[in-house]
Simulated assay, not measured.
Amino acid sequence: MRLSYVYILKCSDDSYYTGVTSNLDKRLLDHQSGKHKDSYTYKRRPIELVFYADFTDIRLAINSEKQIKKWSRAKKEALINNEFEKLPNLAKKKFK
């Protein structure tokens, strides 16, 4: 069984990058070494792995990555901090 991973990196500019891979160690090394000069993380190194989840189905991993990329910073930080009970309220739209 091959695992896939959704991961969140914290960049040196305090932003977050979310990605998906089937080889987390290699992908982290690629980000840290600047292998891809056009990537989001290239000029934001060093990076730190702050969250990852493993999946047995790559399609679920890709769908999760797409979902997390749309989330607010607050919601991503709740996920990173294992504050799962906060996720539903952070998903609600705030009206003025």
Rank of each mutant, 00 (worst) to 15 (best):
T56D: 11
M1E: 06
N82T: 10
F84I: 14
A61K: 08
K86H: 06
A78T: 03
Y16T: 01
T41V: 15
A53C: 09
K26C: 08
V6H: 01
P46D: 07
D25N: 15
L24A: 02
I68R: 01
D38M: 13
H31V: 04
A53W: 04
Q32W: 02
S33Y: 02
V50Y: 03
E48D: 11
S22I: 08
I80H: 01
K26I: 10
F84G: 12
L3Q: 10
W71P: 04
E83V: 03
E65Y: 04
K86A: 06
I58S: 12
I8R: 00
K75H: 07
V50C: 08
F84P: 05
N89C: 12
L60M: 13
G34W: 06
A74L: 11
D30I: 13
I68T: 00
C11F: 01
E65A: 05
R27E: 03
V6N: 02
I80M: 04
R44G: 02
Q32M: 10
F55I: 09
R73E: 05
I68M: 11
V50M: 07
K37F: 05
A74H: 08
S12H: 09
R2M: 12
Y7D: 05
E83G: 00
Y7E: 03
G34V: 11
K66E: 09
A91T: 13
K76E: 00
R73T: 09
Y40V: 14
A91P: 01
L60P: 00
R27W: 06
D14I: 06
D14P: 02
H36C: 10
T21P: 06
L79I: 15
A78I: 05
M1T: 10
F55S: 09
L49Y: 05
N23K: 11
T56P: 03
A78P: 03
K43M: 07
M1A: 11
D38H: 13
L28W: 04
V50T: 04
A78E: 00
N23Y: 07
V50D: 01
Y42L: 15
H36T: 15
Y17G: 04
K75C: 12
K37N: 09
V6D: 00
P46F: 12
L90S: 01
F55H: 10
N81V: 04
H36I: 15
I68C: 01
L9G: 03
Y16G: 04
A91G: 15
K26T: 09
S33G: 07
